[in-house]
Amino acid sequence: MLLTPEEWGIVRLSLKVTIVAVALATPVAFALAYLLARARFPGKVLVDALVHLPLVLPPVVTGWLLLIGFGVKGPIGGLLHDWFGLTLIFRWTGAALASAIMALPLMVRAMRLSIEAVDRRLEGAARTLGAPPWRVFWTITVPLALPGILAGAVLGFARSIGEFGATITFVSNIPGETETLPIAIYAALQVPGSEGVVTRLAIISVVLSLGALVTSEILSRRADAGRGQHVL
């Protein structure tokens, strides 16, 4: 399929934003999933609800909260700006942050289920064989939860690449900086006679999302070689 250089730029930007978003969200999602699956602490219900909030909140509200928190004068955005010279608002990095936050609930859910499915008796067996807790974590818990961790990351990728509401609210639509696929499609829809652009970008979206889901399945099958449990 032939894309114009601008359209390739949109695809590249979308991939960059999404990959950074998933790279950012994966360790956070895993830590939260592990905490929610294993730890008992006061306020756990609240943490659980907060993690899931972006799933049910109108995306425009999430975007607005990001504006307040991460704007140049916001409590977190101000610190990032003053200490690291890092500006998120109206930048592709802000788009990545918005995508990461929107993808987080789905990622945490998938990872949490896979951590809860790890047979804790195997961890006990590993302890009796002389493995300290950190070794049990890296040699038993993480490998056994790996299909779910990968599936969660790829699910996050699929969710991220379609992220629209929070992103356009937080970082607006700046061609070449924050104009990701869904935002470009939306913008093109406002211009009469741009059906060709819309169609091409929509096909790219479908291909990327479908590719992510298929990849997730292949990855979990491979991680699974010789064992026989499936995530998707």
Partner: peptide, 29 residues
Amino acid sequence: PADRRAAGYVFQDARLFPHYRVRGNLLYG
């Protein structure tokens, strides 16, 4: 702690690690 008791524990259900081959299971400890 359990990992420093040097107990050779043989469980009723064998409890082998499914993601290690027999060799990996034998050498784990």
